[in-house]
Write a protein that binds this DNA or RNA. Structure first.
Lengths: 201, 201
DNA sequence: ATAAAAGTTGACTGGTCAGTATAGTCATGC
DNA sequence: GCATGACTATACTGACCAGTCAACTTTTAT
Protein backbone atom coordinates (compact mmCIF):
# COMPACT_ATOMS: atom_id res chain seq x y z
CA UNK A 1 0.00 0.00 0.00
CA UNK A 2 1.30 3.38 -0.95
CA UNK A 3 1.27 6.18 1.55
CA UNK A 4 -1.84 8.33 1.67
CA UNK A 5 -0.20 11.36 0.25
CA UNK A 6 1.30 9.53 -2.70
CA UNK A 7 -2.05 8.36 -4.04
CA UNK A 8 -3.82 11.63 -3.38
CA UNK A 9 -1.04 13.77 -4.77
CA UNK A 10 -0.78 11.60 -7.85
CA UNK A 11 -4.49 12.14 -8.48
CA UNK A 12 -4.16 15.88 -7.93
CA UNK A 13 -1.21 16.18 -10.25
CA UNK A 14 -2.57 13.93 -13.00
CA UNK A 15 -6.02 15.51 -12.83
CA UNK A 16 -4.62 19.02 -13.02
CA UNK A 17 -2.36 18.14 -15.95
CA UNK A 18 -5.04 16.36 -17.96
CA UNK A 19 -7.59 19.11 -17.47
CA UNK A 20 -5.07 21.84 -18.18
CA UNK A 21 -4.11 20.08 -21.38
CA UNK A 22 -7.66 19.53 -22.60
CA UNK A 23 -10.63 20.71 -20.54
CA UNK A 24 -12.77 20.02 -17.50
CA UNK A 25 -15.64 18.65 -19.54
CA UNK A 26 -13.58 16.34 -21.72
CA UNK A 27 -11.62 14.65 -18.95
CA UNK A 28 -13.49 12.00 -16.97
CA UNK A 29 -12.79 10.69 -13.51
CA UNK A 30 -12.04 7.36 -15.19
CA UNK A 31 -9.46 9.05 -17.43
CA UNK A 32 -7.75 10.53 -14.40
CA UNK A 33 -7.77 7.24 -12.50
CA UNK A 34 -6.53 5.24 -15.47
CA UNK A 35 -3.69 7.66 -16.16
CA UNK A 36 -2.77 7.76 -12.48
CA UNK A 37 -2.94 3.97 -12.24
CA UNK A 38 -5.33 4.25 -9.32
CA UNK A 39 -8.75 2.73 -8.78
CA UNK A 40 -11.90 4.75 -8.83
CA UNK A 41 -12.77 3.79 -5.27
CA UNK A 42 -9.63 5.53 -4.10
CA UNK A 43 -10.54 8.63 -6.04
CA UNK A 44 -13.84 8.90 -4.20
CA UNK A 45 -12.13 8.11 -0.93
CA UNK A 46 -10.11 11.29 -1.27
CA UNK A 47 -12.48 13.55 -3.20
CA UNK A 48 -16.19 14.02 -2.92
CA UNK A 49 -16.51 14.91 -6.59
CA UNK A 50 -14.59 15.71 -9.73
CA UNK A 51 -15.12 19.41 -9.02
CA UNK A 52 -13.60 18.97 -5.56
CA UNK A 53 -10.48 17.46 -7.08
CA UNK A 54 -10.12 20.43 -9.39
CA UNK A 55 -10.43 22.91 -6.54
CA UNK A 56 -7.84 21.05 -4.48
CA UNK A 57 -5.58 20.57 -7.49
CA UNK A 58 -5.60 24.32 -8.16
CA UNK A 59 -4.74 25.00 -4.53
CA UNK A 60 -1.96 22.44 -4.65
CA UNK A 61 -0.53 23.88 -7.86
CA UNK A 62 -0.57 27.33 -6.38
CA UNK A 63 1.04 26.06 -3.15
CA UNK A 64 3.86 24.59 -5.21
CA UNK A 65 4.39 27.73 -7.24
CA UNK A 66 4.07 30.33 -4.53
CA UNK A 67 7.66 30.06 -3.30
CA UNK A 68 8.89 30.73 -6.83
CA UNK A 69 6.62 33.77 -7.07
CA UNK A 70 7.76 35.03 -3.66
CA UNK A 71 11.37 34.72 -4.72
CA UNK A 72 10.73 36.39 -8.04
CA UNK A 73 8.85 39.27 -6.44
CA UNK A 74 11.18 39.72 -3.50
CA UNK A 75 11.71 43.37 -2.52
CA UNK A 76 15.37 42.53 -3.11
CA UNK A 77 14.68 42.51 -6.82
CA UNK A 78 14.22 45.84 -8.66
CA UNK A 79 10.50 46.20 -9.41
CA UNK A 80 10.73 46.27 -13.19
CA UNK A 81 12.92 43.20 -13.14
CA UNK A 82 10.25 41.37 -11.18
CA UNK A 83 7.76 41.95 -13.92
CA UNK A 84 10.25 41.06 -16.62
CA UNK A 85 11.04 37.83 -14.84
CA UNK A 86 7.36 37.02 -14.54
CA UNK A 87 6.91 37.43 -18.30
CA UNK A 88 9.95 35.29 -18.95
CA UNK A 89 8.85 32.52 -16.64
CA UNK A 90 5.37 32.52 -18.12
CA UNK A 91 6.90 32.08 -21.54
CA UNK A 92 9.25 29.35 -20.36
CA UNK A 93 6.43 27.48 -18.63
CA UNK A 94 4.21 27.68 -21.68
CA UNK A 95 7.05 26.50 -23.87
CA UNK A 96 7.74 23.55 -21.60
CA UNK A 97 4.07 22.61 -21.41
CA UNK A 98 3.74 22.92 -25.18
CA UNK A 99 6.71 20.63 -25.76
CA UNK A 100 5.37 18.06 -23.31
CA UNK A 101 1.78 17.97 -24.59
CA UNK A 102 2.04 19.19 -28.14
CA UNK A 103 -0.29 22.14 -27.52
CA UNK A 104 -0.02 25.62 -26.12
CA UNK A 105 -2.08 25.25 -22.94
CA UNK A 106 -2.54 28.78 -21.59
CA UNK A 107 -3.24 29.66 -17.98
CA UNK A 108 -4.74 26.71 -16.09
CA UNK A 109 -6.80 28.79 -13.65
CA UNK A 110 -8.19 30.92 -16.43
CA UNK A 111 -8.97 28.04 -18.79
CA UNK A 112 -10.85 25.91 -16.32
CA UNK A 113 -12.28 28.94 -14.53
CA UNK A 114 -13.72 30.34 -17.71
CA UNK A 115 -15.02 26.97 -18.83
CA UNK A 116 -17.09 26.27 -15.72
CA UNK A 117 -17.59 29.83 -14.44
CA UNK A 118 -21.31 29.88 -15.10
CA UNK A 119 -22.25 26.51 -13.60
CA UNK A 120 -19.71 25.52 -10.96
CA UNK A 121 -19.43 28.17 -8.31
CA UNK A 122 -16.76 26.42 -6.24
CA UNK A 123 -14.32 26.19 -9.12
CA UNK A 124 -15.21 29.67 -10.37
CA UNK A 125 -14.48 31.32 -7.04
CA UNK A 126 -11.28 29.35 -6.51
CA UNK A 127 -10.13 30.37 -9.95
CA UNK A 128 -10.98 33.99 -9.23
CA UNK A 129 -9.17 33.84 -5.91
CA UNK A 130 -5.96 32.44 -7.38
CA UNK A 131 -5.95 34.84 -10.30
CA UNK A 132 -6.35 37.63 -7.79
CA UNK A 133 -3.44 36.25 -5.76
CA UNK A 134 -1.22 36.44 -8.81
CA UNK A 135 -2.36 39.97 -9.56
CA UNK A 136 -1.22 41.20 -6.16
CA UNK A 137 2.41 40.50 -7.03
CA UNK A 138 2.06 42.67 -10.10
CA UNK A 139 0.34 45.38 -8.09
CA UNK A 140 3.10 45.60 -5.51
CA UNK A 141 5.83 45.60 -8.14
CA UNK A 142 4.13 48.43 -10.00
CA UNK A 143 3.62 50.35 -6.76
CA UNK A 144 7.35 50.04 -6.01
CA UNK A 145 8.20 51.05 -9.57
CA UNK A 146 6.04 54.15 -9.20
CA UNK A 147 7.78 55.08 -5.96
CA UNK A 148 11.21 54.75 -7.53
CA UNK A 149 9.92 56.70 -10.55
CA UNK A 150 10.80 54.07 -13.13
CA UNK A 151 7.35 53.97 -14.61
CA UNK A 152 4.89 56.53 -15.97
CA UNK A 153 1.72 54.78 -14.91
CA UNK A 154 -0.02 56.35 -11.90
CA UNK A 155 -2.42 53.92 -10.28
CA UNK A 156 -0.85 50.58 -9.29
CA UNK A 157 -4.19 48.85 -8.70
CA UNK A 158 -5.71 49.82 -12.02
CA UNK A 159 -2.46 49.09 -13.85
CA UNK A 160 -2.14 45.65 -12.27
CA UNK A 161 -5.65 44.74 -13.40
CA UNK A 162 -4.82 45.79 -16.92
CA UNK A 163 -1.49 43.97 -16.98
CA UNK A 164 -3.20 40.87 -15.66
CA UNK A 165 -5.89 41.10 -18.37
CA UNK A 166 -3.21 41.55 -20.97
CA UNK A 167 -1.32 38.46 -19.79
CA UNK A 168 -4.50 36.40 -19.61
CA UNK A 169 -5.60 37.61 -23.02
CA UNK A 170 -2.27 36.76 -24.59
CA UNK A 171 -2.29 33.28 -23.06
CA UNK A 172 -5.83 32.78 -24.28
CA UNK A 173 -4.85 33.81 -27.79
CA UNK A 174 -1.80 31.57 -27.66
CA UNK A 175 -3.98 28.61 -26.69
CA UNK A 176 -6.57 29.29 -29.36
CA UNK A 177 -3.96 29.86 -32.05
CA UNK A 178 -1.82 27.07 -30.65
CA UNK A 179 1.20 29.26 -31.27
CA UNK A 180 3.87 30.36 -28.83
CA UNK A 181 4.79 33.28 -31.08
CA UNK A 182 1.81 35.16 -29.62
CA UNK A 183 3.68 35.28 -26.32
CA UNK A 184 6.99 36.51 -27.67
CA UNK A 185 6.18 40.19 -27.40
CA UNK A 186 4.68 39.83 -23.92
CA UNK A 187 7.58 41.35 -22.01
CA UNK A 188 7.97 44.43 -24.16
CA UNK A 189 4.21 44.92 -24.47
CA UNK A 190 3.79 44.93 -20.71
CA UNK A 191 6.81 47.15 -20.17
CA UNK A 192 5.52 49.54 -22.78
CA UNK A 193 2.07 49.58 -21.22
CA UNK A 194 3.25 50.56 -17.76
CA UNK A 195 5.55 53.13 -19.32
CA UNK A 196 8.80 51.62 -18.08
CA UNK A 197 11.52 54.22 -18.39
CA UNK A 198 14.56 52.01 -17.92
CA UNK A 199 14.45 48.46 -19.09
CA UNK A 200 17.22 46.33 -17.70
CA UNK A 201 18.56 43.62 -19.98
CA UNK B 1 -43.82 21.47 -41.46
CA UNK B 2 -41.56 24.41 -40.83
CA UNK B 3 -39.32 25.66 -43.53
CA UNK B 4 -35.83 24.23 -43.62
CA UNK B 5 -34.15 27.36 -42.51
CA UNK B 6 -36.39 27.84 -39.49
CA UNK B 7 -35.47 24.54 -37.86
CA UNK B 8 -31.81 24.77 -38.74
CA UNK B 9 -31.51 28.39 -37.67
CA UNK B 10 -33.31 27.66 -34.43
CA UNK B 11 -30.79 24.92 -33.66
CA UNK B 12 -27.89 27.20 -34.55
CA UNK B 13 -29.16 30.02 -32.40
CA UNK B 14 -30.17 27.89 -29.41
CA UNK B 15 -26.95 25.86 -29.55
CA UNK B 16 -24.80 28.96 -29.73
CA UNK B 17 -26.64 30.61 -26.85
CA UNK B 18 -26.55 27.58 -24.56
CA UNK B 19 -22.87 26.92 -25.17
CA UNK B 20 -21.94 30.57 -24.81
CA UNK B 21 -23.80 30.66 -21.52
CA UNK B 22 -22.26 27.50 -20.09
CA UNK B 23 -19.73 25.52 -22.11
CA UNK B 24 -19.26 23.11 -24.99
CA UNK B 25 -18.72 20.13 -22.72
CA UNK B 26 -21.67 20.76 -20.44
CA UNK B 27 -24.29 21.23 -23.14
CA UNK B 28 -25.54 18.07 -24.80
CA UNK B 29 -27.21 17.65 -28.16
CA UNK B 30 -30.30 16.59 -26.21
CA UNK B 31 -30.21 19.87 -24.27
CA UNK B 32 -30.07 21.85 -27.48
CA UNK B 33 -32.88 19.87 -29.09
CA UNK B 34 -35.09 20.04 -26.03
CA UNK B 35 -34.64 23.81 -25.70
CA UNK B 36 -35.23 24.30 -29.40
CA UNK B 37 -38.30 22.04 -29.31
CA UNK B 38 -36.87 19.96 -32.12
CA UNK B 39 -36.23 16.24 -32.38
CA UNK B 40 -32.80 14.76 -32.27
CA UNK B 41 -33.20 13.16 -35.68
CA UNK B 42 -33.64 16.62 -37.17
CA UNK B 43 -30.46 17.77 -35.49
CA UNK B 44 -28.51 15.04 -37.23
CA UNK B 45 -30.32 15.73 -40.46
CA UNK B 46 -28.75 19.18 -40.51
CA UNK B 47 -25.45 18.62 -38.68
CA UNK B 48 -23.02 15.74 -38.84
CA UNK B 49 -21.93 16.28 -35.24
CA UNK B 50 -22.18 18.59 -32.26
CA UNK B 51 -18.84 20.12 -33.27
CA UNK B 52 -20.21 20.84 -36.73
CA UNK B 53 -23.12 22.74 -35.23
CA UNK B 54 -20.73 24.88 -33.22
CA UNK B 55 -18.64 25.72 -36.26
CA UNK B 56 -21.71 26.68 -38.26
CA UNK B 57 -23.22 28.56 -35.32
CA UNK B 58 -20.07 30.66 -34.98
CA UNK B 59 -20.14 31.42 -38.69
CA UNK B 60 -23.81 32.34 -38.49
CA UNK B 61 -23.25 34.59 -35.47
CA UNK B 62 -20.43 36.33 -37.26
CA UNK B 63 -22.51 36.68 -40.43
CA UNK B 64 -25.23 38.40 -38.39
CA UNK B 65 -22.81 40.75 -36.66
CA UNK B 66 -20.59 41.67 -39.57
CA UNK B 67 -22.85 44.41 -40.93
CA UNK B 68 -22.81 46.11 -37.54
CA UNK B 69 -19.02 45.92 -37.44
CA UNK B 70 -18.75 47.24 -40.98
CA UNK B 71 -20.97 50.17 -40.11
CA UNK B 72 -19.07 50.84 -36.89
CA UNK B 73 -15.70 50.73 -38.64
CA UNK B 74 -16.77 52.66 -41.72
CA UNK B 75 -14.06 55.01 -43.00
CA UNK B 76 -16.77 57.65 -42.54
CA UNK B 77 -16.23 57.39 -38.79
CA UNK B 78 -13.12 58.97 -37.22
CA UNK B 79 -10.72 56.14 -36.33
CA UNK B 80 -10.64 56.69 -32.58
CA UNK B 81 -14.40 56.83 -32.47
CA UNK B 82 -14.55 53.45 -34.17
CA UNK B 83 -12.55 51.91 -31.36
CA UNK B 84 -14.56 53.71 -28.71
CA UNK B 85 -17.77 52.46 -30.26
CA UNK B 86 -16.41 48.93 -30.32
CA UNK B 87 -15.66 49.11 -26.59
CA UNK B 88 -19.09 50.51 -25.89
CA UNK B 89 -20.88 47.88 -27.91
CA UNK B 90 -18.90 45.11 -26.27
CA UNK B 91 -19.96 46.43 -22.90
CA UNK B 92 -23.57 46.79 -23.95
CA UNK B 93 -23.65 43.27 -25.39
CA UNK B 94 -22.12 41.78 -22.27
CA UNK B 95 -24.57 43.69 -20.11
CA UNK B 96 -27.51 42.45 -22.16
CA UNK B 97 -26.27 38.86 -22.09
CA UNK B 98 -25.67 39.07 -18.35
CA UNK B 99 -29.18 40.33 -17.72
CA UNK B 100 -30.67 37.60 -19.87
CA UNK B 101 -28.72 34.68 -18.42
CA UNK B 102 -27.67 35.89 -14.99
CA UNK B 103 -23.96 35.52 -15.76
CA UNK B 104 -21.28 37.51 -17.47
CA UNK B 105 -20.60 35.35 -20.50
CA UNK B 106 -17.47 36.78 -22.13
CA UNK B 107 -16.50 36.37 -25.75
CA UNK B 108 -18.20 33.34 -27.33
CA UNK B 109 -15.46 32.56 -29.84
CA UNK B 110 -12.79 32.81 -27.18
CA UNK B 111 -14.64 30.78 -24.56
CA UNK B 112 -15.47 27.84 -26.75
CA UNK B 113 -12.25 28.16 -28.73
CA UNK B 114 -10.15 28.00 -25.61
CA UNK B 115 -12.17 25.15 -24.16
CA UNK B 116 -11.75 22.79 -27.09
CA UNK B 117 -8.58 24.21 -28.65
CA UNK B 118 -6.46 21.20 -27.82
CA UNK B 119 -8.81 18.46 -28.97
CA UNK B 120 -11.14 19.81 -31.65
CA UNK B 121 -9.22 21.26 -34.53
CA UNK B 122 -12.25 22.33 -36.57
CA UNK B 123 -13.65 24.50 -33.78
CA UNK B 124 -10.22 25.78 -32.80
CA UNK B 125 -9.38 26.98 -36.29
CA UNK B 126 -12.82 28.53 -36.80
CA UNK B 127 -12.46 30.35 -33.52
CA UNK B 128 -9.00 31.56 -34.50
CA UNK B 129 -10.29 32.67 -37.87
CA UNK B 130 -13.16 34.72 -36.45
CA UNK B 131 -11.03 36.31 -33.73
CA UNK B 132 -8.61 37.29 -36.45
CA UNK B 133 -11.45 38.77 -38.50
CA UNK B 134 -12.38 40.99 -35.57
CA UNK B 135 -8.80 42.03 -35.09
CA UNK B 136 -8.55 43.37 -38.62
CA UNK B 137 -11.10 46.07 -37.86
CA UNK B 138 -8.96 47.25 -34.98
CA UNK B 139 -5.86 47.14 -37.13
CA UNK B 140 -7.33 49.31 -39.83
CA UNK B 141 -8.71 51.82 -37.34
CA UNK B 142 -5.31 52.13 -35.65
CA UNK B 143 -3.60 52.48 -39.03
CA UNK B 144 -5.96 55.34 -39.90
CA UNK B 145 -5.41 56.89 -36.49
CA UNK B 146 -1.66 56.76 -37.02
CA UNK B 147 -1.98 58.46 -40.41
CA UNK B 148 -4.09 61.27 -38.97
CA UNK B 149 -1.63 61.53 -36.07
CA UNK B 150 -4.19 61.04 -33.34
CA UNK B 151 -2.29 58.24 -31.68
CA UNK B 152 1.27 57.70 -30.43
CA UNK B 153 1.52 54.00 -31.18
CA UNK B 154 3.64 53.18 -34.24
CA UNK B 155 2.87 49.70 -35.53
CA UNK B 156 -0.82 49.10 -36.29
CA UNK B 157 -0.45 45.33 -36.59
CA UNK B 158 1.36 44.87 -33.28
CA UNK B 159 -0.96 47.34 -31.55
CA UNK B 160 -4.06 45.58 -32.85
CA UNK B 161 -2.84 42.25 -31.50
CA UNK B 162 -2.26 43.83 -28.11
CA UNK B 163 -5.62 45.59 -28.05
CA UNK B 164 -7.32 42.35 -29.02
CA UNK B 165 -5.52 40.46 -26.24
CA UNK B 166 -6.51 43.16 -23.80
CA UNK B 167 -10.17 42.95 -24.80
CA UNK B 168 -10.14 39.15 -24.66
CA UNK B 169 -8.38 39.19 -21.32
CA UNK B 170 -10.86 41.62 -19.84
CA UNK B 171 -13.80 39.58 -21.06
CA UNK B 172 -12.21 36.45 -19.64
CA UNK B 173 -11.74 38.13 -16.28
CA UNK B 174 -15.28 39.43 -16.34
CA UNK B 175 -16.58 35.92 -16.98
CA UNK B 176 -14.47 34.35 -14.26
CA UNK B 177 -15.31 37.07 -11.75
CA UNK B 178 -18.88 37.19 -13.01
CA UNK B 179 -18.71 40.96 -12.72
CA UNK B 180 -19.38 43.58 -15.36
CA UNK B 181 -17.34 46.14 -13.43
CA UNK B 182 -14.21 44.58 -14.89
CA UNK B 183 -15.29 45.91 -18.27
CA UNK B 184 -16.04 49.44 -17.19
CA UNK B 185 -12.54 50.79 -17.73
CA UNK B 186 -12.18 49.05 -21.09
CA UNK B 187 -12.60 52.11 -23.25
CA UNK B 188 -10.14 54.31 -21.41
CA UNK B 189 -7.65 51.49 -20.96
CA UNK B 190 -7.59 50.81 -24.67
CA UNK B 191 -7.42 54.51 -25.53
CA UNK B 192 -4.60 54.97 -23.09
CA UNK B 193 -2.74 51.98 -24.48
CA UNK B 194 -2.74 53.20 -28.07
CA UNK B 195 -1.79 56.67 -26.84
CA UNK B 196 -4.89 58.44 -28.08
CA UNK B 197 -4.25 62.15 -28.15
CA UNK B 198 -7.77 63.43 -28.58
CA UNK B 199 -10.61 61.50 -27.09
CA UNK B 200 -13.97 62.50 -28.42
CA UNK B 201 -16.85 62.35 -25.96
C1' DA C 1 -51.18 12.90 -60.30
C1' DT C 2 -47.08 11.10 -58.97
C1' DA C 3 -42.68 10.37 -57.53
C1' DA C 4 -38.59 11.98 -55.76
C1' DA C 5 -36.60 14.98 -52.43
C1' DA C 6 -36.52 17.23 -48.15
C1' DG C 7 -37.65 17.29 -43.57
C1' DT C 8 -39.47 15.05 -39.23
C1' DT C 9 -40.17 11.73 -35.69
C1' DG C 10 -39.05 9.07 -31.63
C1' DA C 11 -37.35 4.81 -30.44
C1' DC C 12 -32.97 2.70 -30.29
C1' DT C 13 -27.77 1.50 -29.73
C1' DG C 14 -23.66 0.84 -27.31
C1' DG C 15 -20.78 3.18 -24.76
C1' DT C 16 -19.44 6.35 -21.08
C1' DC C 17 -20.55 9.29 -17.28
C1' DA C 18 -20.26 10.53 -12.13
C1' DG C 19 -20.78 8.42 -8.28
C1' DT C 20 -21.81 4.14 -4.95
C1' DA C 21 -21.55 -0.34 -2.54
C1' DT C 22 -19.17 -3.60 -0.42
C1' DA C 23 -15.68 -6.53 0.60
C1' DG C 24 -11.17 -6.69 1.39
C1' DT C 25 -6.15 -5.19 2.72
C1' DC C 26 -2.85 -2.87 5.27
C1' DA C 27 -0.51 -0.08 9.08
C1' DT C 28 -0.77 1.04 13.61
C1' DG C 29 -1.72 0.96 18.66
C1' DC C 30 -2.65 -1.74 22.52
C1' DG D 1 -2.88 -11.28 18.58
C1' DC D 2 -6.42 -8.46 17.75
C1' DA D 3 -9.10 -4.38 17.14
C1' DT D 4 -9.43 -0.12 14.64
C1' DG D 5 -9.53 3.00 11.02
C1' DA D 6 -7.41 4.44 6.87
C1' DC D 7 -6.97 2.94 2.35
C1' DT D 8 -7.82 -0.12 -1.94
C1' DA D 9 -10.18 -3.11 -5.29
C1' DT D 10 -13.79 -4.09 -8.22
C1' DA D 11 -18.20 -4.61 -9.62
C1' DC D 12 -22.15 -2.05 -10.07
C1' DT D 13 -25.95 1.62 -10.75
C1' DG D 14 -28.92 4.46 -13.37
C1' DA D 15 -28.56 8.40 -15.92
C1' DC D 16 -26.92 10.38 -19.92
C1' DC D 17 -23.98 10.68 -23.94
C1' DA D 18 -23.36 11.20 -29.24
C1' DG D 19 -25.01 9.33 -32.88
C1' DT D 20 -28.23 5.89 -35.89
C1' DC D 21 -32.19 4.18 -38.01
C1' DA D 22 -36.28 3.36 -40.52
C1' DA D 23 -40.76 4.77 -40.90
C1' DC D 24 -43.27 8.74 -41.69
C1' DT D 25 -45.05 13.48 -43.57
C1' DT D 26 -44.71 17.38 -46.31
C1' DT D 27 -42.94 20.01 -50.22
C1' DT D 28 -41.59 20.46 -54.78
C1' DA D 29 -40.69 19.32 -59.57
C1' DT D 30 -42.48 17.19 -63.43
Amino acid sequence: MKKTCETKEKLLQVGFDLIWDSSYGSVSVDDICKRAGINKGSFYHFFRSKADLVVEACEEYWREHRPEMDRMFSPQVPPLERIQNLCRIIYADQQQKAEKYGHVCGCPYASVGSEVATFDEKIRSKSEELMSSKRKYIESAIADAIREGSVTVKDPVAASYTVQSLLMGMMLEARVQNDLKVLEGMESTVMNFIGAKTVAV
